[in-house]
Nucleic acid binder design. Structure first.
Lengths: 349, 349
DNA sequence: CTGAAAGCGCTTACAG
DNA sequence: CTGAAAGCGCTTACAG
């Protein structure tokens, strides 16, 4: 493996000049630049990143903006853990990762955190654009400062984010429908339960439902699919609401044998079913967190769709790091897997 | 973050002495050793791995031993690709990865490759112990030379491998059974097809079958499960054999509506079914390679079990690298995921 | 037992 | 436009 010194010697220049060419820095004549570039290409020169990082003393800082979680039962626990993990791995390169958090149900906390980020003036930002309006407005402020940003978990179309990491929601709903159809018999009805507690990222929830509906539209158009929308915002209220309304639905249509929960709250439906007379109902939901795992293992939940949230957080920081450090251009979209999780493989994901 | 220099200054010694203490090298008086250790602890000293790697010129070499594949339709293509990928990532640390290959069906080629590895005398070995007997005998030669080794994809119990990366075969068979039961009706019979072309790693195949059988034993003991074993060794022969024998089986028992192929050859069964009158048969197999994907997408194969083979190869070299370079002790087992793959999520894994 | 010095490969501030 | 030199933090061969 050639070094800068080798290249310099062969080109009859100093190592400083090779370095300038290597990084497209100004102050090199076209002639020597070409000569050196030819040699770099000829030897497929790869710079020693350790030596580079050691000598390069400017420190990069990356800001992340994600919902705060205080328990490992919530979805965002895993992306946040992924961010921490990669952070510990790359801090030896002198990169600083500053984590900012907001309350998932409070747009104002999102804005406040965002302004703290602007004050920090980081080299790049990884954010979960949970609140559509605030997000589209605030990222403009990043653009005027030339701070690149990456969307995590939730995508907003038509923005100038350099990348997006997350699941194809439509496709995951499509797959959920297929699974539910497989495990129901042809005469069973289906119920979709939406918890509107999550006023945010309703777009991914909606895409999941669209995928789900489209599957049945194309493969099984006569299937009866009902909807239950729960609108309260406090958790305790929701549970009461769910219990009352779900009970009604199941009494009104005793043919309902399959429930699809296009959010991470399948455990709530599972809890109800477990304590009810409708134990044979099949239930499919999203996200592998503690509460859902509990009901998956006792078979109240039959399937969960996983999107490898830990890897999302990890990957998000990683691509920013590689862009800043190695000038690597990320893909525009990193599709997270659509994993089918059951009692039998949940311990192996 | 303190540096060796800071510590040295505070202890009134040279950096060389701090380095000696840091690495437990001999030649330091007990008194200064203690003084320095106290300081290292006080400041929670963490050495700069980049500077360390840069200065440390001894080069590590890692040998890998896996089956050779010449097409991306075969299982080992992906682990080999994972090995290449991590190799390209770590060669900047001066690590050399030497890949040795053998013919999957020829124990002698395995032994020959193994002897080439011994000649190279690497710092560690990653191997797929495809041939049980040869493997257990040959790894003894690594042990006497104090060369640590890691098993890839196939485990052999009771050996001194420092780690194993692969899937829990029993559990994956168990899960396959659950899925097949879900998509069949109660009166359908099941057929297990084993291709003995693969005389090797029969143990994982056997474990898959055991898991499969045990699921039905416990959840559905009266289910009729038949077996078809194909023994020829040439591919063309197998296809003929399969076609003849499978035809017979399906004529003899028209109730067979589900087929389980506990190896990567589900595509062969799919090909037969596609051209036959039994198109409604459900088929579940292993491994997501080109041929299987083709039949998964046209719905001749219903489910495939994936074990993320790329990551297996990648992880295998990674843990060896981290052990050699950062002295990190690997886990004894790295369980690969048991992924359920369908037409709908195959493009997102 | 201990220190001074060279060196790993790259980057940069300075001088010309 | 270009080079010589110092320095990033650690390791090591050598001298004492």
């Amino acid at each position: 493996m050639k070094t800068i010194k080798d290249i310099a010697k062969e080109a009859n220049v100093s190592t400083g000049t090779v370095d300038r060419v290597l990084h497209n820095r100004p102050g090199v004549s076209e002639k020597t630049r070409e000569k050196i570039q030819a040699l770099l290409k000829k030897y497929k020169f790869q710079k020693n990143v350790m030596a580079s990082a050691l000598a390069y003393k400017k420190k990069f800082s990356i800001a992340t903006l994600t919902p705060l979680t205080n328990s490992n039962e919530e979805f965002w626990h895993e992306p946040n853990r992924g961010i921490q993990t990669i952070f510990n791995e790359i801090k030896k390169y002198g990169v600083e990762v500053h984590c900012f958090y907001f309350n998932h149900f409070d747009p104002e906390s999102f804005q406040n955190a965002f302004h703290n980020i602007l004050e920090l003036n980081p080299n790049a930002v990884l954010l979960a654009p949970v609140f559509h309006k605030s997000s589209t407005k605030l990222i403009k402020l990043l653009e005027v400062r030339n701070i690149p940003y990456v969307f995590l978990n939730i995508d907003i179309q038509g923005q100038k984010n350099i990348s997006f990491i997350g699941q194809n929601s439509y496709q995951s709903g499509f797959l959920s429908a297929k699974i539910l159809k497989l495990i129901l018999s042809d005469k069973d009805d289906i119920l979709i339960i939406r918890f509107r507690k999550n006023i945010d990222h309703h777009e991914s929830i909606q895409s999941r439902v669209n995928g789900f509906m489209d599957y049945f539209k194309s493969k099984d158009p006569s299937r009866i699919i009902r909807s239950l929308n729960l609108k309260s915002s406090a958790t305790s209220e929701i549970e009461l609401n769910l219990s009352k309304n779900l009970n009604n639905e199941l009494i009104n249509d005793p043919l309902i044998k399959g429930i699809f929960v296009p959010s991470s709250y399948a455990h709530m439906a599972a809890q109800f079913i477990e304590g009810s007379e409708w134990k044979d109902i099949k239930l499919i939901g999203y996200d592998v967190h503690e509460k859902n795992i509990k009901y998956l293992k006792n078979e109240s939940i039959d399937f969960l769709i996983d999107q490898e949230p830990f890897e999302q957080g990890y990957k998000g920081v990683e691509i920013i790091f590689e862009k800043l450090f190695f000038n690597k251009t990320p893909k525009k979209i990193y599709n997270s897997p659509i994993n089918i999780v059951t009692k039998e493989n949940v311990d192996y994901i």
